[in-house]
């Protein structure tokens, strides 16, 4: 899922203080799971803003609500008229939600309340870990299901580098060496020999480096057109 964390309050305050009517808009999918941007967090943040406003004699009307997702027409369409009654929307969605809503809402600014951080897992309650960067060319079958692109700070394909340090990465003891994990995992799976193969330079054009990506699912697009023609 997509993980994000709330921006420092002062940064949020400086974004919204100039507006008189603001909606704090939660997103109840990914960022709700990581306790940063769901309706509950939107509610809490709106109250904090109100306290700040009254303690600084700033007049702002702040409301809150949540959408199932801010990245799909289906959920935005139902709420759009309500959203358009505000001077500004402080979105607690990931960057996708902020972008998408900005395109839909007309001449109302949509401000980011979160820093979108990564695609991660829930390691345990309150602990999230980056595991994928959406590089567009998955090689997890070659590395025992552990991604060197996302989890090695050098994204090397023929690791480990000289910086692996008793299972930890050279950037710090809090970071596991992805290649150390890969080797242990491939050993356990009995497929360590796969790592002897030299992996050639990658085609990064399938990743963000090839420009913003779009995906087309033709049969879904076709069905939609047929429905429209009926």
């Amino acid at each position: 899922m997509i993980v994000g964390e709330q921006k420092p309050f002062e940064e949020i305050w400086n974004m919204i203080r100039q507006y008189r009517r603001v909606l704090v808009l939660g997103c109840n999918t990914c960022v709700a799971v990581c306790h940063s941007g769901g309706e509950k967090e939107a509610h809490i943040l709106s109250e904090v803003i109100q306290i700040k406003a009254s303690s600084t004699d700033t007049s702002i009307e702040v409301n809150h609500m949540g959408l199932v997702r801010q990245c799909e027409n289906e959920y935005i369409d139902d709420a759009i008229h309500n959203l358009q009654t505000y001077e500004a929307i402080l979105s607690l969605a990931c960057g996708v939600g902020v972008n998408f809503l900005s395109q839909k809402i007309g001449s109302i600014p949509v401000l980011p309340g979160l820093n979108t951080t990564f695609y991660g897992s829930v390691e345990e309650a309150g602990v999230f870990a980056e595991m994928c960067v959406g590089c567009g060319d998955c090689i997890l079958h070659l590395t025992g299901g552990i991604c060197p692109i996302a989890r090695c700070p050098k994204s090397i394909m023929n690791g480990p580098c000289g910086g692996t340090n008793n299972g930890k990465c050279e950037i710090g003891v809090d970071t596991d060496c992805a290649w150390y994990l890969i080797i242990q995992r491939m050993k356990a799976l009995g497929i360590l020999h796969l790592l002897e193969e030299i992996q050639p330079p990658r085609d990064w054009s399938k990743s963000f480096h090839g420009g913003p990506r779009r995906m087309f699912v033709s049969h879904v697009m076709l069905n939609k057109r047929e429905d429209a023609n009926k």
Binding site: K154, I156, N158, I198, Q199, P201
Partner: peptide
């Protein structure tokens, strides 16, 4: 990240490249 850990400020906020690795 190393660059800022010693006696210098370095450029720990730099973006690295790693388009290719040593073997490549």
């Amino acid at each position: 990240r190393f660059s800022g850990l010693g006696r210098f400020k370095g450029h720990p906020g730099a973006k690295n490249v790693y388009d290719i690795d040593t073997c490549q």
